[in-house]
């Protein structure tokens, strides 16, 4: 199998197809953007037709949706949750707050750049992003998966020290086990 590049290619194509048509998002409403997730998942927009559905625990999930601003306290949980997810895993930053802090740009308790702390694959702008925008964000993620560039875990692994340093800069009490890759 390893040597046979053609069959490997076919397997890769199928894998990529399966991965992009089965995106299980982690049920974690980190911020106020979570209010548009029900709309996205239910009858009018129905993300399930794209294979997007909810997963209850990080072990089962593929996509971590950061729905809006992240406070320092939540960031700590998000990192833990992200590290508990199984690769390949994707992160979607949702709303202006995740991109640059949004209207909380001078708040002492929210982070301003999500991609400093965990690798982000897709940002969806807006406050809030409409469900259509969320769906197109998923579409973008699917394109990235197809192109093979949605490699968050790899980036995280390679730049692990940098990410960890950033994380530890704002999380003062690091009381959970370090991640062994």
């Amino acid at each position: 199998m390893q040597n046979d590049s053609r069959s490997q290619k076919i397997v890769d194509i199928i894998q990529a197809y399966a991965r992009r048509h089965s995106l299980w998002i982690l049920a974690y409403g980190t911020g106020c953007g979570a209010i548009e997730i029900p709309s996205t998942m239910t009858s009018r927009y129905d993300a399930e037709r794209l294979g997007v559905r909810g997963a209850a625990t990080p072990r089962q999930a593929d996509v971590l949706l950061i729905t809006g601003y992240l406070t320092v306290k939540t960031l700590k949980r998000v990192i833990r949750v992200y590290e508990q997810m199984q690769s390949p895993k994707y992160v979607i930053g949702f709303g202006s707050c995740a991109i640059n802090g949004g209207m909380y740009w001078d708040s002492y308790n929210t982070i301003k750049m999500l991609d400093q702390y965990i690798p982000v694959d897709v940002y969806i702008s807006g406050c809030m992003p409409r469900p259509e925008a969320v769906l197109s964000g998923f579409g973008k993620l699917q394109d990235l998966i197809k192109a093979g560039v949605a490699d968050g875990p790899k980036r995280y692994e390679e730049n692990f020290d940098w990410y960890r340093a950033n994380q530890k800069k704002i999380i003062k009490n690091w009381n959970f086990a370090d991640y062994n890759w």
Binding site: I14, Q15, Y17, S22, T42, D46, E48, R49, G51
Partner: peptide, 15 residues
Amino acid sequence: RYGPPIYQNFIDAFK
């Protein structure tokens, strides 16, 4: 809802 395709479970399983 429109719902996922009926082969969605295969995709999920393979994923």
